[in-house]
């Protein structure tokens, strides 16, 4: 099962990587820095914290963890699909 179209695997992998990086950019630079003033005003506050502020200090970090967990899940599924998962 070793050579099941490495190119297709690489392309789907790139797709996963780029879409996760887009989310990564949105939760940190987007919500925490660039749009924070707008979010503070227009989004419901988290507890008593304004949304943008909360994203910058807490939400983005939680988001990063979720991104990595989905990366593990998506990549393992992709590897299985292309026959690269190791038999242990």
């Amino acid at each position: 099962m070793q050579d099941k179209d490495p190119l297709a695997h690489r392309l789907s992998c790139l797709k996963i990587t780029l879409s996760l990086l887009a989310i990564w950019f949105m939760v940190s630079f987007g919500a925490g820095i660039l749009l924070r003033d707008w979010l503070d005003v227009n989004f419901p506050s988290v507890g008593s914290a304004p949304f943008g502020f909360w994203m910058a200090q807490q939400g983005s970090i939680i988001g990063f963890i979720l991104i990595l967990i989905s990366y593990v899940y998506l990549m393992n599924r992709l590897d299985r699909k292309h026959g690269y998962s190791e038999e242990r």
């Binding site: 502020f53 910058a56 200090q57 970090i61 990063f64």
Partner: peptide, 15 residues
Amino acid sequence: SRFLMGWTGGFVLLT
């Protein structure tokens, strides 16, 4: 927040 995000968000890039 720059330190909080910078030093954790880097791990997404790293991974």
